[in-house]
Design a protein around this nucleic acid. Structure first.
Length: 322
DNA sequence: TCGGTCAACTGGTGTG
DNA sequence: CACACCAGTTGACCGA
């Protein structure tokens, strides 16, 4: 229960408050409220606490009023007439206060007194108005902050959901591509088990026919017996894990060490130097771009690696070591 | 009649 | 201790 209410034309509680006065400037303001009249032109504010008759209530009146409240004697109503009811500040007063509030929402004592003078209000009223105004401003600010946070949250939420969607999309894409890749590899493996033989068969037939035309039966036998090795060498094409050299155009499969090391070795004894050279030339493309070793070959190649040297005839020769 | 708004009050706290 | 400020509360007022 708020004590010390002063409106309703009864100055009792206000006077009581001021009697007991422990409340400093506010009490002083209350005192001023009770002891002075508003001078603001056209003010309908209830703050004119000179009594309704325009006369400051003497202590006697205070007690009489108190008695009246206690006893509920209707005669006092006639005597005091209907008390002035609580009034709001006028639009002009509020506007003036608002403008001042915008300048500075705190109130120094001098400013308070000046404002009170200008508005015909009591300094305490001005102080109270500023207090309430600050409270309203704070509430509004909280609402604004809440709205801003809410908007920010919604924006982030939308952003997050979009990212989730994109992530799912990319996931699906990766899955599709992976499946396609696996399928391709499977198909390649399947085709490798048949195709290389066919390729080699054509090539070997050509070699055989050449050999036959040159009437050198030993060549044919050598080539035929290499069929397995060559097919296994071709299988290295899809060995994507193995390091291999490329000049950007030719895949350097012959340099691929894995499983292809013995192609030229096993039956080396069966070939003369010339025959061997011919055979090598028939398989190695005539114009061969050797990779720049210093660029593409690790300084310490693996043990099972391909080596490149010049033989006595100054012809480049690849050989495998393991 | 009811709910929102506002002026005013209360009690507590911080500061010089 | 005086003073200012704040959060919470009260009751008058007012429009729907």
């Amino acid at each position: 229960m708020a004590g010390g209410r002063v409106y309703g034309g009864s100055n009792i509680s206000l006077l009581l408050q001021n009697e007991g006065i422990s409340r400093s400037s506010e009490s002083l303001d209350n005192f001023l409220i009770s002891s002075s009249s508003s001078t603001f032109a056209g003010s309908r504010s209830m703050v004119n606490f000179s009594d309704v008759h325009g006369v400051n209530l003497p202590e006697k009146s205070f007690f009489r009023s108190f008695d009246h409240e206690e006893n509920g004697d209707d005669d006092f109503d006639e005597y005091f007439r209907q008390p002035e009811k609580k009034r709001r500040l006028t639009t002009d007063q509020v506007e003036f206060l608002e403008r001042n509030f915008e300048v500075e929402n705190k109130l120094e004592p001098e400013r308070k007194i000046q404002l009170a003078k200008d508005l015909g209000l009591q300094p305490r009223q001005v102080a109270i108005w500023f207090q309430n105004r600050r409270a309203r401003w704070k509430t509004k600010q909280l609402e604004k902050d809440y709205d801003a946070l809410k908007a920010s949250y919604n924006s982030l939420k939308i952003n997050y959901e979009n990212l989730l969607k994109e992530k799912e999309k990319l996931k699906t894409e990766v899955l599709t591509l992976t499946n396609q890749q696996l399928l391709k590899e499977k198909e390649k493996k399947n085709s490798e088990s048949t195709e290389p033989n066919e390729q080699f068969h054509t090539q070997s037939q050509r070699l055989i026919s050449n050999a036959v035309s040159e009437e050198k039966p030993s060549d044919a036998s050598v080539v035929v017996c290499k069929q397995e090795d060559l097919s296994s060498a071709n299988s290295d094409v899809v060995d994507i894990d193995s390091p291999h050299y490329t000049d950007g155009v030719h895949s350097t499969l012959l340099m691929e060490p894995a499983n292809s090391s013995h192609v030229f070795e096993a039956d080396q004894s069966d070939l003369s130097q010339d025959e061997e050279d011919n055979f090598s030339r028939s398989l190695v493309p005539p114009v061969y771009n050797f990779p720049k070793l210093e660029d593409d070959v690790p300084s310490n190649p693996p043990a099972n690696s391909c080596n490149y040297e010049f033989l006595a005839e100054d012809q480049p020769v690849w050989f495998w070591s393991y």
